[in-house]
Deep mutational scan, measured.
Amino acid sequence: KNALMQLNEIKPGLQYTLLSQTGPVHAPLFVMSVEVNGQVFEGSGPTKKKAKLHAAEKALR
């Protein structure tokens, strides 16, 4: 199970927000955030999926 699945089991129905998309078309950088218990966690990556995963990993720490 990855961090997204684990976080969804603990806190179902979380909303992930796209904060920014920067970089060239062939190498974009997405920044996504998720709010858990009033705290906002951000993650970035080359795809929205990876950015969401990194945000979930930070939220689980």
Rank of each mutant, 00 (worst) to 15 (best):
K1C: 13
N2P: 04
A3L: 12
A3D: 05
L4S: 06
L4P: 04
M5E: 15
Q6E: 15
Q6V: 12
L7A: 01
L7G: 02
L7W: 03
N8F: 06
N8W: 12
E9F: 09
E9V: 10
E9D: 11
I10L: 14
K11T: 09
K11W: 14
P12T: 04
P12A: 08
G13I: 02
G13Y: 03
L14D: 01
Q15F: 07
Y16G: 01
T17W: 06
T17D: 04
L18P: 03
L18I: 08
L19H: 06
L19G: 05
S20P: 07
S20A: 12
Q21T: 12
Q21P: 05
T22E: 12
T22L: 08
T22W: 05
G23H: 05
P24A: 08
P24Q: 07
V25M: 13
V25N: 15
V25L: 11
H26F: 05
H26K: 10
A27E: 13
A27T: 08
P28D: 03
P28C: 05
P28N: 05
P28Y: 02
P28R: 13
P28L: 02
L29A: 11
L29R: 13
L29Q: 14
F30T: 05
F30L: 03
F30R: 02
F30Q: 02
F30A: 01
F30I: 07
V31D: 03
V31H: 14
M32A: 10
M32T: 06
S33M: 11
S33C: 12
S33I: 09
S33A: 14
S33R: 14
E35M: 08
V36E: 02
V36P: 01
N37K: 06
N37R: 05
N37T: 04
G38I: 01
Q39H: 10
Q39L: 10
Q39D: 12
V40E: 10
V40F: 08
F41E: 01
E42H: 10
E42K: 10
E42S: 11
E42I: 14
G43T: 03
G45T: 01
P46Y: 14
P46V: 07
T47F: 00
T47A: 02
T47C: 04
T47K: 05
K48N: 02
K48S: 05
K48T: 07
K48W: 06
K49S: 14
K50P: 01
A51D: 02
A51V: 01
K52P: 00
L53H: 14
L53P: 00
H54Q: 15
A55R: 00
A55D: 01
A56N: 03
E57F: 04
E57P: 01
A59T: 03
A59H: 02
A59F: 02
A59Q: 00
A59V: 12
L60P: 02
R61D: 07
R61L: 15
